[in-house]
Design a protein around this nucleic acid. Structure first.
Lengths: 230, 230
DNA sequence: TAGTGGTCTAGACCACTCA
DNA sequence: GAGTGGTCTAGACCACTAT
């Protein structure tokens, strides 16, 4: 009960009680008002602390019902999604970029579905290679909505679409998925690895409101991994 | 400016201004006090809104200096880390579990390093297979600190360590990493896939305070992916 | 209907850090 | 030294929902 910042101390104390089974899984914990009285602070302070625990997945809060210890403590991990150039430079390497294909054509059905577009709608297709110290780092295979302002005038041979979008077309939402894929001959050739090598794949779709912006598939050279703290 | 909840409306308005380059990347935005005056609300309400944007990576906030639009908008994605059984059942499949190996021996150097343990410290090593509708779903390769209370009495032939830990040893922190790996003959045999297949791998370490709990490597059958919204 | 969390206010003090 | 964000308070009203 020392002079630590109050809401963080309350949050830590609540974690302790959950860990110690004073508040067992599924149990209802005291009211915000009761806890405020116990800790000798304002209810808003307790609210702030419990909100954090709920965001961390340790509590489930329901109006009128109360706050409950999560029966199945689903942990959450937050990953940062950096721009590829920064990702390379953060490793102390020099970033390089090479545009391979730029064409406008109807997207494959799978891409159309991901973006919720009408069939046969022509999209700008970009295939590019990112390099780290001259070695293949990542393949950027992107489909871009040509209706986006500024796309027509952008020079994707100089600036990667990845970076152009970050700086020019902030998105409001989207989805991201991680998976593993074996290198087919084309990927192996571009990445300079053996065919069949296990590659880490990131697929991402982004929207600005209801309008689709882009769908991209990033295929990383062998050895890539994504890390976070939980 | 209609009757939406205030802090969420302020957060949305701030996002709009950032997207519209009214507040360009790197620029300093007005004080909390100024914004409160502009929006006609209390400073705490503005604070709540801007704190959300900072957590989302769109703003960088520094005392005395002010709040700045992030120069490189690092997006963040939050993934849920479910218990494997729930992961299977959420797909509408029946979960099965089979313990393959349980032994106590000094961990490999890599595992010792991940957990910060002294060399030659004996750990409980568990190798188990999770099934979905009878088919291999995931291999759980785990090293467990035997000093953890209750471990000695747990029956990991019946309950997976994954599930036992979640229900008995809440952790306070740790790390998680995603990567891709080719199936070696042993993995291929256990997962019923062809050797060389690209597999999705999750590695996780957890601690309770300063004490290491476990290091685990989850190798998923081909086709597995992890998704989130951003 | 009534209890609970969600939010807002107006004011205050503090901690950090830039100038 | 002074400006800014970080936090706390005491009180209030509202929204949702279990009963």
């Amino acid at each position: 009960m020392p002079g630590t910042l109050t809401w963080q101390w309350i949050a830590a104390e609540a974690r302790r009680r959950i860990a110690a089974r004073l508040w067992p899984p599924g149990a209802r914990i005291p009211d915000e008002a009761d806890l405020a009285a116990e800790f000798g602070c304002a209810r808003a302070t307790v609210n702030r602390a419990l909100r954090e625990l709920a965001a961390a997945g340790l509590l489930v809060r329901r109006r009128k019902a109360g706050s409950f210890v999560a029966a199945h403590p689903v942990r959450k991990a937050t990953f940062e999604i950096p721009v590829i150039r920064q990702d390379v430079e953060a490793r102390g390497l020099r970033h390089g970029y090479r545009l391979i294909v730029a064409e406008t054509l109807p997207a494959p059905a799978a891409v159309q579905a991901r973006l919720g577009l009408a069939p046969h709608a022509p999209l700008l297709h970009l295939l590019a290679l990112h390099l780290a110290d001259g070695l293949p780092f990542c393949i950027e295979d992107r489909w871009l909505n040509p209706a986006i302002p500024g796309v027509a005038g952008a020079d994707f041979a100089t600036v990667s679409a990845n970076e152009w979008l970050v700086q020019n077309r902030p998105f409001s939402g989207g989805g991201i998925a991680f998976s593993a894929q074996a290198a087919d001959p084309q990927l192996a050739g571009l990445l300079g690895c053996t065919p069949g090598a296990a590659l880490f794949v990131v697929e991402r779709e982004t929207w600005a409101g209801a309008e689709p912006i882009t769908a991209v598939r990033l295929t990383y050279a062998p050895g890539y991994s994504v890390a976070a703290t939980i």
